[in-house]
């Protein structure tokens, strides 16, 4: 279970709160959507869950599987099952996708006292997962995300997720920049990972994604606070009415 209690976040060296006393519970195995207007703090929430520097958590806690993860480094959180699919996946020139994936997987396995994968084991896994996501193996021999289209970057993120098999998944606007075909492939990839052991937070600005990844619950985030919660129909309602009702 993911439990966020009274979370308050500002930027470092700036007292203005971006996340204001936010509380949220996502039971194990459930998928919750967070919808909200631009600038409402969605990415900030995602970053703070993953442990990004540059933010100050002035109050509150983030409890994942019984542990407050706020004191963990990002790599500790990753080994503890946390995965953030970036709104803007980074390009890593000079590091082949396969090398990056393998370095990450083995780092996590070492941290969890698991044996690292042999090359054949790794290759078998990556071949299968990339086929599921319609990713050409040649693409993975190229540097991470360099020269990829927006859609390719998002699929590459989902591949990383499928390979690392995390238990807490945060998707930050994974649908942005995707055409309908790519959206279906990505959603399928996400849905494959749905299960009793996985908890997901799906951040999106548009309802469209939720036609493919059907959430157990939808929360509206505006101005750094959860302004309302409901079932998937809330998303449809928001699509019609917009976010103006939630302003301030």
């Amino acid at each position: 279970m993911l439990e966020i209690n009274n979370l308050c976040v500002s930027l470092k060296n700036n007292n203005t709160l971006i996340i204001k006393d936010l509380s949220l519970i996502v039971p194990k195995g459930e998928v919750h959507a967070i919808m909200g207007p631009n600038g409402s703090g969605k990415s900030t929430l995602a970053h703070v869950i993953a442990g990004k520097d540059g933010y100050e958590v002035t109050d509150g806690e983030i409890i994942w599987n019984g542990t407050n993860i706020l004191n963990q480094t990002p790599e500790e959180r990753a080994a503890f099952g946390v995965f953030l699919a970036f709104q803007y996946p980074m390009e890593v020139p000079g590091v082949a996708g396969l090398t990056f994936l393998r370095t990450a997987m083995n780092a996590i396995r070492r941290k969890n006292d698991q044996e690292t994968l042999t090359t054949p084991q790794f290759m078998r896994l990556v071949k299968q997962k990339s086929a599921d996501l319609h990713i050409d193996m040649e693409m993975l021999k190229r540097p991470v995300n360099v020269g990829f289209s927006g859609g390719e970057k998002k699929r590459a993120e989902i591949l990383q997720m499928a390979m690392l098999a995390p238990s807490l998944i945060v998707l930050d606007e994974t649908d942005s920049g995707l055409d309908i075909d790519a959206l279906k492939i990505v959603s399928e990839g996400v849905n494959t990972l749905r299960g009793a052991d996985r908890t997901m937070l799906v951040i999106t600005h548009y309802q469209r994604l939720l036609d493919y990844i059907i959430p157990n619950k939808v929360h509206v985030l505006a101005n750094g606070q959860i302004k309302g919660s409901g079932d998937k129909n809330l998303a449809l309602k928001l699509e019609k009415s917009g976010y103006t009702a939630y302003a301030n």
Partner: peptide
């Protein structure tokens, strides 16, 4: 970029070396 690597489980020193 360091954060991107670390969020994938790669320890900081290893991320910087990479």
């Amino acid at each position: 970029l360091v954060f991107y690597c670390r969020s994938r489980g790669i320890p900081e020193a290893e991320a910087r070396a990479l």
